[in-house]
Amino acid sequence: PVAEELDLKRAAAAAGEKSLSMLHVRDLLATTGYVRGGCSPVGMKKRFPTLIDETAQLFDTIMISGGRRGAQIEITPDDLGTYCAATFADICRATDASV
């Protein structure tokens, strides 16, 4: 969710990894084919494991980046998960309101 913060420890656990880190912006284009502001699990040059916060499944449709600045895609969470072979998991940092 756009208003939440990714919890890298939770994401690593969901991915079955010891740890994860964010990709540095200078490596973004060469690694994914995307420019900053246009990152998306849809259309990556190389398929990476994809995690989607489980709260996405609470909605009929969600909006994601279309892979270019300003391009948006409205899609069902299940269709996105299927297309990306994604895992739905609790990957956001707990906030005071949710504790």
Rank of each mutant, 00 (worst) to 15 (best):
P1L: 05
P1Q: 06
V2S: 07
E5D: 09
E5N: 08
E5A: 08
D7W: 00
L8H: 05
L8W: 03
R10T: 02
A12M: 06
A13D: 07
A15N: 02
K18W: 05
L20V: 09
L20Q: 04
M22F: 12
V25W: 04
R26L: 09
R26K: 13
T31H: 03
T32D: 09
G33T: 10
G33H: 07
G33C: 09
Y34N: 10
Y34W: 12
Y34R: 15
C39A: 12
C39Y: 02
C39K: 02
V42S: 04
V42P: 01
K46F: 01
K46G: 02
F48T: 07
F48V: 08
T50F: 06
D53T: 06
E54S: 14
T55K: 14
T55Y: 03
T55I: 14
Q57N: 14
D60M: 10
T61H: 13
T61P: 02
T61S: 11
I62V: 15
I64L: 06
S65L: 05
S65V: 05
G66R: 08
G67L: 11
G67K: 07
R68P: 04
R68A: 15
R68Y: 13
R68D: 15
R69W: 04
G70R: 09
A71M: 11
T76Q: 02
P77S: 04
D78S: 12
D79P: 00
L80A: 06
G81N: 06
T82R: 13
Y83N: 06
C84P: 04
A85P: 00
T87Y: 00
T87G: 01
F88C: 07
F88A: 06
F88V: 08
F88Q: 03
A89S: 07
D90A: 12
D90W: 05
D90F: 05
I91Y: 00
I91G: 00
C92L: 10
C92M: 14
R93P: 00
R93L: 13
A97R: 08
A97K: 09
A97P: 00
S98Q: 10
V99R: 13
